[in-house]
């Protein structure tokens, strides 16, 4: 799980162009949206692309994103639950 979380952090930073953010700055349990990383609606859509591109997971209903993308940890758990980790 920890390895997956670390990998995800790197992928998020790259996919979302978070140039000034380092992996260690991201607390896996902290909310991804809201104040923390300053992510917006386009970033939420990019996370959907990320899951498909790197993990082959297609999110059919974007509303599911709300729960999946709460934090890096919930993302990792979701990937595991889909048997794609």
């Amino acid at each position: 799980m920890d390895a997956l979380i670390e990998k995800l952090k790197g992928q998020i930073i790259e996919q979302l162009n978070l140039a000034e953010v380092k992996p260690e700055d991201i607390n896996p349990e902290a909310p991804l949206f809201g104040d923390g990383l300053g992510l917006d609606s386009i970033d939420a859509l990019e996370l959907i692309v990320l899951l498909e591109k790197y993990y082959g997971i297609k999110i059919q209903d974007p509303k599911d994103g709300k729960t999946i993308f709460q934090s890096v940890k919930t993302m990792a758990e979701y990937i595991k639950s889909q048997g794609k980790a």
Partner: peptide, 9 residues
């Protein structure tokens, strides 16, 4: 095939 919304915008 991965069109990116962050590019498209």
């Amino acid at each position: 095939y991965f069109p990116s919304p962050a590019v498209f915008v």
